[in-house]
Design a protein around this nucleic acid. Structure first.
Lengths: 155, 155
DNA sequence: ACAGAATTGATACCAAATATCATATGTACA
DNA sequence: TGTACATATGATATTTGGTATCAATTCTGT
């Protein structure tokens, strides 16, 4: 199994399981001592509802009832606790995205913004080997793959 | 040959061939209709003199005689024409670096900032394959590898 | 319910980068 | 070699994205 792709269409609505996702994340934050608050839930919920990588500003715009600072704080918290990961698109804009399970890589559609997770793709070993050959001790890596999703490639 | 590493020590001085590098880049810009100007040469020269990934502000600081706007414009031009590539360190700071030959990846030392190019590392094929399996048509990718260089790993 | 710490949000603030526009400078062409 | 004109420059203002402040509010454990 080289690649298991779990597709997140850029066109779909908030998932039905979104409430469960929010509960799950709130629970994980609780375990780390962070409180379960209304605004924080709103932020998490909005994050979970995004179908594609989003900017902090977009998130603010979608949460008119939550203060800017709180949105940014919530986002930062989610990134710090690895619930959300940053993705850098080719246009240099920094975006965010729910990280689904541990470390993985993204396939990003340059046209519609849809993303897919690339799992089980064993670049790590190859990179570690190459890094070692160059005298480095690898501690991590960041990989984004750009392209067109099936739908957008047809056009 | 898995990895040919061409090391750029973070501690070294501007290369002797720096003038030739500047001429080369200016020539390439000329071919595309961009003029050969004094401030632009200064920017290119400063870029070529950097031994490690640098921020736009650092570049400005090293060019007190060139206007900020001109530095930023020059940098953007170099990125657009693929003379310079952006690297995103783990601390989220966006930095820049001369791109040496075509597409390649970077090994970045998290301690001293030294970088090395990772050439001949065939992630591309693997990624293209995985992307195809996920229904994507890959058009590009971005990969950064973080770690510690030989010197810094010893400590 | 209570105490105390964490969180919120309005606002001010900051830094990085871009837009503006009059002036200066290359380049092509006569 | 000069000249015309588009391009580039740079001082400054502005925008943008994000953080610090701090009084008021809200959680959580007891």
């Amino acid at each position: 199994m080289v690649a298991q792709a779990q597709r997140h269409s850029g066109h779909e609505h908030p998932r039905p399981r979104s409430a469960a996702v929010v509960d799950d994340i709130v629970g994980q934050l609780s375990d780390r001592g962070y409180r379960d608050t209304e605004p924080r839930r709103l932020v998490i919920s909005a994050v979970a509802a995004q179908g594609r990588p989003f900017t902090a500003e977009e998130l603010c715009a979608s949460l008119p009832c939550v203060g800017r600072a709180t949105v940014y704080r919530g986002l930062r918290l989610l990134v710090e606790t690895d619930q959300v990961c940053r993705v850098l698109l080719e246009d240099r804009e920094l975006r965010y995205q729910l990280s689904h399970q541990g470390h993985h890589h993204h396939l990003l559609c340059a046209v519609c913004g849809a993303s897919a997770d690339l799992e089980g793709c064993d670049v790590e070993d190859m990179l570690r080997e190459a890094a070692t050959a160059a005298g480095f001790r690898m501690s991590g890596h960041w990989l984004e793959v750009y392209g067109r999703c099936g739908e957008c490639a047809e056009g």
